[in-house]
Simulated scan of single mutants.
Amino acid sequence: MEFTVDSPARTLAAALGATLYSPATRPRLAADVLKQAGRGVMSMVLCLEDSIGDGDVAAGEENLVRQLGLLDEAAEAGENLPLLFIRVREPRQIPDLVRRLGRAVRRLSGFVLPKFTEGRGMPFLEELAAAESACGRRLFAMPVLESPQLLHLESRAAALQGIARAVGAHRDRVLALRLGVTDFCSAYGLRRAPDMTAYDVQIVASVIADVVNVLGRADGTGFTVSGPVWEYFRLHERMFKPQLRRSPFVGEAEELRNALIEHDMDGLLREIELDRANGLTGKTCIHPSHVAPVHALSVVSHEEFSDATDILRPEQDDGGVLRSAYTNKMNEVKPHRAWAERTLLRAEVFGVAREGVGFVELLTASLPPA
């Protein structure tokens, strides 16, 4: 389906896909954004926080205002833009940037709020609400959960409850919650290798599980929680064997398998699948090469679509158990309903693969030309 910055929040949260980060100091930022939009990027974060030096913040703000003005002109001329967010450092930057952007603020979807806790996050949300009123446009928040209070066992439960209160008070304004796994690892001096996923680092996996437990529930109280960043995009020496089975890659696709392994993409593909299995939607990305795999694996398979539509048929409202049309599983209507609803929302945005088409074909078709 088509969507714009003014689409319903439910649609936009599912449509974020691979959210690509870029430093706000890039001199050709507007051109970069247009280039990535042409390659299928659906959302970007223009960063004034960790990706730039402390002494570059003022120059980054000036560049950001100038480049968003250029993007406003490009959109006026018919260019498509991704959803654009600014990652700020301090609450006061939000109203200041909105004021300085002028008309160009209409191209902005919102702000990314770093190191979010209840105490630190509420001033950001209050400034965002005020800026929204001042400019007359809807502006979303995407808090980043990355503070040590979330990682440390003795403070985790209280920190999660505080975050739940803060985002709950601004529910209509919070588009998604983002996980800052790099900061989690930093608190213990850790860094996962390219042949390991975030879920192999048990202290990180436990935080992800607790965040989803408290903030990602499917009972109407939860929020979209995005997958953590994948840091690697070039060849590294391997200690473990590749994580991609050979069987899906037959014939000419074997070359694709070798290329994915060579660029450490096999770990990324596995992590994307584990993200979804653990209740996460979309992914933070720091390199354009990560976008196609995230989007290819976001497409709903024909089997998933078949199961979801069967579960949600009106005649099944009373519950019961159905045999899958693929005759390989049971579909229990009431327990699987929330999964089916989430699957059909993803299908609206990313589409449904034809029967017999798997992620290998989708990934091959979505990769940019060499």
Rank of each mutant, 00 (worst) to 15 (best):
G251L: 12
I52M: 09
G102L: 06
N258C: 08
V349L: 01
R107V: 05
R100H: 06
M196E: 13
P242G: 09
E76R: 06
L139S: 11
H263R: 07
V181M: 15
A193R: 15
L125W: 04
T25E: 03
E255I: 10
G55W: 03
F305V: 02
R39Y: 06
E315V: 02
F140Q: 06
P335M: 08
L81N: 11
P148N: 07
H236P: 01
A253Y: 15
A198N: 10
L363M: 02
L175K: 01
G320C: 04
D50Y: 12
K115Q: 12
Q36R: 05
A164Q: 14
R192I: 06
E49H: 06
G267W: 00
A169G: 13
S51P: 01
L190D: 14
E315R: 06
R217C: 07
G136P: 04
E132L: 00
L125Y: 05
E79T: 04
P369K: 09
R87P: 04
L177G: 13
E341I: 07
P314Q: 14
A187F: 08
A353L: 15
Y199R: 13
E303Y: 13
P293G: 09
I94H: 03
L16D: 00
V41K: 05
L29T: 07
K283C: 02
S366Q: 07
M42V: 01
A187I: 11
V211M: 06
R323L: 08
Y199N: 12
Y232C: 10
G189K: 13
E254I: 14
R270V: 03
A58T: 12
L84W: 12
A218V: 08
S155V: 05
G69W: 03
D96Y: 14
L268I: 03
G251K: 08
P248S: 11
Y21Q: 10
G180H: 07
P293F: 00
K241R: 15
A31T: 05
V57R: 03
V294C: 09
A292D: 01
M239K: 13
E304P: 00
E303N: 05
N331A: 12
S324A: 15
R39A: 15
G222Q: 04
T281H: 00
G222E: 04
P335W: 01
V291K: 14
V214L: 05
F305R: 01
G251F: 04
